[in-house]
Simulated scan of single mutants.
Amino acid sequence: MHWYDERTAIVRQALRTNFEGPFVYLLIGSERALLLDTGTGHADLRVVVDELLAGRDVELVVAHTHGHGDHVGGDGQFDRVVGRSVEEVAAFFGITSWPGEIVSLDLGERVLDVIPIPGHEGSDLAVYDRETRLLLTGDSLYPGRLYVPDWPSYRSSIRRLAEFVAAGNPVEWVLGAHIEMTDRPGEDYPMGADVHADEHRLELAPETLTELDEALAAAGPEPGRLVHDHFVVFPR
């Protein structure tokens, strides 16, 4: 667990509990706290979250960057959890035009922008925190293998995300949900590896989003594997 600042916590599930080693994020406002993802369910996340929120009188809302099992496995540990389908996600956040509409979520003296970015799973979201200028991208961009079953939607989503940043929403760091790359350019770990020697850093520079957008544009409409220093795109 790492406090990025006094209202932003980054928690990683230990690789020894599950090789996915997913990251979850806790963003705390004056009225509500948003927990993004719950891991695989092989660890007691609730205990950790309760400790992080100790002494704070806030409502906890649990949502997801997307609905894959390694991000929703701990849902049963929490009382209020946003559904996983596109319809449920859109209804909760008030998105009336999916995926083109960007909406805000006020946690109380802390406003987030919620950006639909389908392509990896379908109900994918990115979350931009205006306070820290962190861009949370789930499995759509992180130092690892970016699995893309819906190539057209993914290309459009990454373009829309890049345009959001370029439109005057400065990003300090891009933070995703896994680390699957070594610290050697373009080299990832074998699938299922539960030991990560010489691991890549979690945080990606905002230029990495631009790099991904440009790579997808150059690749065109036909899916293709793209190997870059900080990520590998895997069509599926």
Rank of each mutant, 00 (worst) to 15 (best):
R84L: 12
Q77H: 01
F19Q: 11
V48Y: 10
G76I: 09
G55F: 02
P116Q: 01
V227C: 07
E180P: 04
T38V: 10
D183L: 03
E101Y: 01
E51G: 15
V61Q: 07
E207W: 03
R80D: 09
L175P: 05
V174Y: 07
G74T: 06
R84W: 09
V72H: 08
P152I: 02
V61W: 04
L36G: 10
T40M: 05
I10V: 15
Y154M: 12
A91V: 01
S123Q: 06
L204Y: 07
T208G: 01
G119C: 04
L35S: 00
G100Q: 13
P118E: 09
I28F: 05
L27Q: 06
H68S: 02
T65F: 13
A166H: 08
D183Y: 01
S140A: 04
V171F: 03
E203V: 07
Y25G: 04
H71T: 10
F234Q: 14
V24C: 14
W3P: 10
S123K: 06
G108K: 00
G29Y: 13
F92C: 04
V62P: 10
G138D: 05
E6F: 01
H71M: 15
G55Y: 01
V61G: 05
L125T: 06
E88K: 10
F19N: 14
G168Q: 04
T17Y: 00
E172S: 07
M1P: 11
R32G: 01
W3S: 15
R110H: 10
Y4C: 05
H120R: 05
E211T: 12
D150E: 01
E207M: 05
L15C: 11
E101R: 13
L226S: 09
N169K: 11
L226N: 09
L216V: 07
E6H: 11
R130G: 15
G76N: 05
P221C: 11
P99A: 09
V86S: 12
S153T: 06
E6R: 12
Q77S: 08
R7F: 11
P22T: 06
A177P: 07
E163C: 00
A193K: 14
